[in-house]
Computed example of a mutant assay.
Amino acid sequence: MSPHDVTAIVVTFDSAHALPECLGALAADGAPALVVDNASTDDTVAIAQGQGARVVRNDRNLGYGRANNIGVRAAGTAFVLVVNPDCVVDRGAVVALVDAARRYPDAAFFAPQIVEPSGRVFYQPRSLLATSLTNPGGKLVVPEGEACAPFFSGACFLIRRDVFLELGGFDENIFLFYEDDDLCRRVADSGSALIYVPQAVVRHGRGRSSGERPGRIFTSRWHQAWSRAYVSRKYGLPNPAPGMAAVNGLKAVAASLTFRRSLIERYAGSAAGAWAAMRGRKAF
C-alpha cells in the first residue's frame, strides 16, 4: 500500500494565499490532489491547475461537505485524504496514514497529529455528538501514541473511500461546521474504528482556508450556530437554538456600543443563525 492508493481532496474558496504550500507538500509526499473549487473569485483555480492538480469547478459555493462529496465521488482510489487548503502535510505523513490503515483493517478513519502555528498540538477535547469518552470538562489530553477515539477534527484525515460513500459522505444539509462531528459519529455507529496516528504530522494554518472579506465573521458564526442546532436535532439532543439566540442577541447589542465590527458580527451572526434554525430555515 502506498500514497498512490490515495487522492487528496482539497476544497477551496478564495484560497490562493494558502494553496501553493498545501499542494506543494502533497506533491512532495506523493499524493495526487483533486481540488474542488467553490466559485473562487481569486487565482485559486489557476494556481491549482499550475501545480498539476485536477480541478472541479463549482458554479457557486456549495459548502464544505457537498464539495468534498463531489471530490470523493470523482476519486478512483481506495483512500481519500480530506485536506483543508491551509494544511501542510509533513513528508511521510500520507505514508504513515496509509500504513496505519493496513495495520488496522477494522478502522475506517485515520487522523494525523495536527500542529498549529504556535506549535500546539490540536486534539479535539470533546464533541457534542460523542457517545463515549464524552469528556464533559473538555480537558485536553493528547495521546502519546496511536489511539482509538470517537471523534477527530475534519481539517485533515484519511478515510476508506468505500466506507465514506456507503455512509453517504458528509451530510449535505450542512453548509459549514459540525459536518466532521457528524461524519465521525456515523463512522463510529457503523462499527468502524477511528484511529489517531501521531507519526503523521500535518501543520494547520487554522482559519486561513479563505481570504478575509467583510461579513465573513458574521457568515461563519451564522453557520456555526445553525449547524449546532441542526445536528442537535438530528441526534435527539436538547435544542440549543433558543438559548444561543437570546444570549448572543444581548451580546450583539452590547457589542454595538463598542463599534467593533468583528465583535458585532460575531454575536449577531450567532444570534441570527440560531434564530434561523428555530424558524426552520435551511443552511443553503
Score class of each variant (00 low, 15 high):
L158C: 11
R203W: 08
V80N: 00
K234N: 04
A48E: 04
A100S: 05
N173T: 12
T77G: 01
F151M: 12
R54G: 15
E146W: 05
L194V: 13
R221G: 05
Y104R: 07
P117D: 12
V89G: 06
D14T: 13
Q199G: 13
F157G: 06
A53Q: 02
L81K: 00
L237Y: 09
R161K: 03
R203G: 12
R228Y: 12
A252M: 13
V197G: 10
T134M: 11
A75E: 03
L140H: 12
T131W: 06
R213Q: 12
R233L: 12
S232R: 02
V35S: 08
P125C: 11
D180R: 01
V121H: 04
D181W: 10
L167D: 04
A27V: 14
L26C: 07
I9M: 11
V98P: 03
N135A: 11
H4S: 15
A111V: 11
G119P: 06
D86R: 00
R228Q: 15
A149R: 15
S256F: 11
G30A: 08
F177C: 10
R221I: 09
I114H: 05
T41V: 14
R186Q: 09
A46T: 11
R57K: 07
V202T: 11
V247W: 10
D189M: 09
P136G: 09
D189L: 12
A271N: 04
S127M: 08
E265I: 09
R221C: 13
L62Q: 03
A78F: 02
F175G: 00
A283R: 00
A27R: 13
P117L: 10
V6S: 03
V231N: 03
P125A: 13
R266Q: 14
A155E: 07
Y230E: 03
A31L: 06
V83R: 00
V83T: 11
F175S: 01
L133M: 14
R266L: 15
V35F: 06
G215M: 12
V45L: 09
